[in-house]
Design a binder for these strands. Structure first.
Length: 731
DNA sequence: GAGCACTGC
């Protein structure tokens, strides 16, 4: 097999606007070869890779030389010299590698060899958008390199750092590299930074690109940068880095035949079921992966397909289809079901959200059915709320979805829209930063010392309006002073690994003497999907159990309930050494995530450590207080009020007042807002006011994570808040 | 009466 390599610098020189199209001159070999790609993340991220720390050197080398055989067949490996010529002679190189090119595992190793050969003393950072990818890649590369993880090759992700002073090649999440940038402004320890999966355009990747550009144009002209990405967008990366050369490396994937619908229907669930039934009747064996926008459609499709599948498999001689749902809010055990192999004359059908587009890979998929839709959270900075919209996907996303059918053999992709509709789709998905709240990025830039936020080296400028809203928000939180400079409070906020609003809550708590309880609640809030959604038939039962356990939460709402649940998990279960099974059962009964709670404990520990360090300047006893005051919360009204008032300083804007007609209207805009049905306060209609940490618009405006507040508290916080701001200005 | 996907010294 010969991979084709294009020299990309000519794209501009030849005057063409787009990069030179990749030409496939040879028929690709069709062979199933297993090797890691950064997308393969089926491994449970909790336990991490299982590594014997004491494998002796001989066996490591033995293993590495075995792996070399596989490595040497990789397209990237076969073009090593030519690729390295580009990487070493240009400050920035854009490397476009298709799935299966081996870029994520091989390029960093080539660079490592080069560092050694050139006797350079620094190291290489390779960023990944996801933790699991960073861990898996580092583990694989350490094996290929013939070392133990944490030796020459290591990884660094939140809660898990396996690097040592000997580490020269470090895989890390992009969030982690940003943290390093905050502490070590010029990234002095690195000779090379590789940004992998840049095409995904996460907020954090985009920010890193901006920082890297200012570094190479400023204090680090010697820093080498490699931007690795799937197809498309190459030209945008190249232009940003002053026409950096673009290299194309062919991947190894199988052909996927496209089918389009001639007449699309409005009922997407109905179309998708029809399509599955047709595949089941007319096509060879192989599993089906269906992309739907959200949980509602998925649950509906699973129920319908399982029903009709049984009927038709009895009547006609077709495989029995077994439907599985897949979305992030499912418990890990439910998610694990999609990886099970169905035996006998059966066909697995997985109905999934976007999670199967990049984060989860299911083997055995031969057919993809694509609704062409996804759900996306769009931040409306003028309104300070998020809207959850169902929107058409981009062409890039459609291709990515189809590609899921061709990972192990040739496949077929059925798009439930017309070919013409496809051509009308936007080429690329809108980058996340263009539709996100930028308060946190702006604080990061301020901490870094950037004064002119609007004219910074943004890879994608989120726009003047969004930036100004971010600045205002930070000013109101006391993170910036009148002249837009970062305050001491802002410095502390920037260093905490949570959103600025939550940081502000912690700071207030450290002043109010209730830091310990507030840390527990903030930890719960910062774990996504801690509270799972009960199945409709279990809903009332679960709610009843939660109500019985959480007396204070029943009155004061979700934040207090979280603290009560945490207390039971931590003090009654974790600390009194109950078995994991018991804890599991407890979580199941209350429909909360076991893995979620384990993460809560990790976040809590991290936050306690940060708080001890950050706040000991204000209060030398803080460390002692934190350890001593850690206890279960009671039903003491004053204490509960003190805790909620801390949250009110961070979420003053997120409040609504109870109206005589029992509706709530937001303090900021006067709009009607409804308590989300998942809230403890959903049925409680007589709060004088509510405070919420999230405001999401779906079918209407919903407040999530809702607490009861007294109107007098609001008055108190606003008055004090202003006083704080004034004090900062004069100081 | 309802829940796209990621991530942090």
């Amino acid at each position: 097999m010969k991979a084709n390599l294009q020299k990309g610098k000519r794209a501009r020189e030849e005057g063409s606007k787009r990069p030179h199209p990749f030409m496939r001159t040879q028929k690709r070999e069709r062979k199933v070869i297993k090797f890691p790609e950064s997308n393969d993340q089926n491994q449970d991220d909790e336990e991490g890779p299982i590594i014997d720390k004491h494998i002796d050197k001989y066996r490591l080398r033995e293993k590495a030389s075995q792996l070399l055989k596989t490595r040497s067949t990789l397209p990237v490996y076969q073009n090593k010299n030519e690729i390295m010529k580009y990487l070493t002679t240009n400050p920035v190189t854009i490397l476009i590698g298709e799935t299966g090119s081996g870029k994520s595992t091989q390029i960093p190793q080539f660079l490592l060899d080069w560092l050694v050969k050139e006797r350079k003393h620094g190291s290489i950072a390779v960023t990944q958008p996801r933790r699991v990818a960073a861990i898996n890649l580092a583990t694989r590369v350490a094996q290929e390199h013939g070392c133990n993880i944490g030796d020459t090759v290591g990884y660094s992700v939140r809660f898990d750092n396996t690097t040592s002073t000997r580490t020269r090649l470090k895989y890390l999440t992009d969030g982690m590299l940003l943290r390093e940038l905050m502490m070590n402004r010029e990234l002095k320890e690195y000779n090379v930074v590789v940004i992998d999966e840049a095409h995904e355009r996460t907020v954090l990747t985009d920010l890193i690109l901006g920082f890297l550009k200012s570094l190479i144009n400023g204090p680090r002209p010697d820093l080498k940068i490699v931007v690795m990405s799937a197809t498309l967008q190459a030209e945008k990366f190249s232009q940003f880095f002053d026409d950096a050369p673009i290299l194309f490396v062919e991947g190894r994937k199988f052909d996927v035949t496209q089918y389009y619908l001639k007449a699309p229907s409005d009922d997407i669930v109905d179309s998708i079921i029809r399509c599955c039934v047709q595949i089941n009747q007319g096509e060879e064996m192989g599993d089906i992966l269906c992309f739907l926008p959200g949980q509602e459609e998925i649950d509906k499709a699973v129920v319908i397909l399982n029903k009709i599948s049984e009927i038709i498999s009895k009547e006609t001689k077709v495989p029995l289809m077994i439907a599985y749902p897949l979305y992030a809010a499912l418990s890990p055990s439910q998610q694990a079901l999609v990886f099970s192999q169905v035996k006998g004359f059966k066909r697995k059908v997985v109905f999934s959200t976007n999670i199967a587009e990049t984060s989860v890979t299911i083997s055995g998929v031969k057919f993809v059915v694509d609704s062409g839709l996804r759900k996306v959270k769009v931040w409306r900075h003028q309104l300070g709320l998020a809207t959850l919209l169902t929107v058409p996907i981009s062409q890039a996303s459609a291709m990515q979805r189809s590609g899921r059918a061709g990972r192990e053999s040739e496949g077929k992709s059925f798009r439930l829209y017309r070919e013409n509709d496809y051509k009308q789709l936007p080429l690329e998905t809108e980058p996340e930063i263009a539709r996100s709240d930028v308060t946190s990025p702006v604080l990061m830039l301020k901490r870094y010392g950037i004064q002119d936020i609007v004219n910074w080296t943004w890879f994608e400028n989120p726009g003047r309006d969004a930036l100004i809203m971010g600045l205002q928000e930070l000013y109101q939180l006391g993170a910036l002073n009148d002249s837009g400079r970062i305050t001491n409070r802002g410095e502390q906020m920037a260093l905490l690994p949570i959103q600025p609003h939550m940081s502000s809550v912690l700071i207030k708590a450290s002043e109010s003497g209730c830091l310990s309880a507030v840390i527990d609640i903030v930890s719960c809030l910062s774990v996504e999907n801690l509270l799972l959604n009960p199945q409709p038939e279990e809903r009332d039962e679960v709610n009843e159990r939660r109500f019985t356990l959480c007396n204070a939460g029943k009155k004061y709402g979700d934040l207090v309930m979280m603290k009560e649940l945490f207390d039971i998990y931590f003090y009654d279960l974790e600390k009194s050494s109950t078995s994991a099974t018991e804890r599991h059962d407890w979580c199941k009964e209350l429909c909360v995530s076991y893995r979620g709670f384990k993460n809560v404990l990790k976040v809590r520990e991290q936050l306690m450590m940060y708080c001890k360090r950050l706040f000991s300047k204000n209060d030398p006893n803080i460390g002692y207080d934190l350890n001593e005051s850690s206890r279960k919360i009671g039903e003491d009204c004053d204490e509960l009020a003190a805790i909620l008032k801390c949250f009110l300083t961070g979420f003053t804007k997120n409040t609504a007042i109870g109206m005589p007609d029992r509706s709530y209207r937001t303090v900021s805009t006067g709009e009607t807002i409804s308590v989300h049905p998942s809230s403890m306060l959903f049925l409680n209609k007589n709060c004088p006011g509510i405070m919420y940490t999230e405001y999401v618009f779906t079918t209407k405006g919903y407040a999530r994570n809702v607490s009861r507040i007294e109107l007098s508290w609001l008055q108190e916080v606003v008055t004090n808040g202003t006083a704080v701001a004034k004090q900062k200005v004069s100081g």
